[in-house]
């Protein structure tokens, strides 16, 4: 039950919505484009890493910062949620 909740709470749609809120931009986001170009900065990456940690998904700042795209973050979260 707990595992289902975690997966449900961090699917791609959730990620896209949460990132849109983080970068304060409601326009479409190209999932392969660097989020840096959408206004993402390091403090927002850090806030997001902290939020994921609260949800039981342990990713480091560097995990997120080295490839800041929706696709890469989705794969990272899936991998961590499955492990």
């Amino acid at each position: 039950m707990t595992e289902m909740k975690t997966v449900d709470a961090t699917d791609f749609e959730w990620l896209e919505t949460r990132v849109s809120q983080l970068i304060e931009d409601e326009g479409p986001i190209d999932p392969a484009e660097s989020l840096i170009f959408y206004g993402l900065d390091s403090l927002r990456v850090m806030k997001f890493a902290g939020e994921l940690k609260e949800r039981g998904i342990i990713v480091s700042f560097e995990d997120l910062a080295k490839d800041p795209t929706l696709n890469a973050w989705s794969a990272l979260i899936d991998a961590k949620a499955a492990s």
Partner: peptide
């Protein structure tokens, strides 16, 4: 910079 921008990408 000019703060008169609206979206995250414009701000960036």
């Amino acid at each position: 910079s000019n703060n008169d921008v609206e979206t995250g990408r414009e701000r960036r």
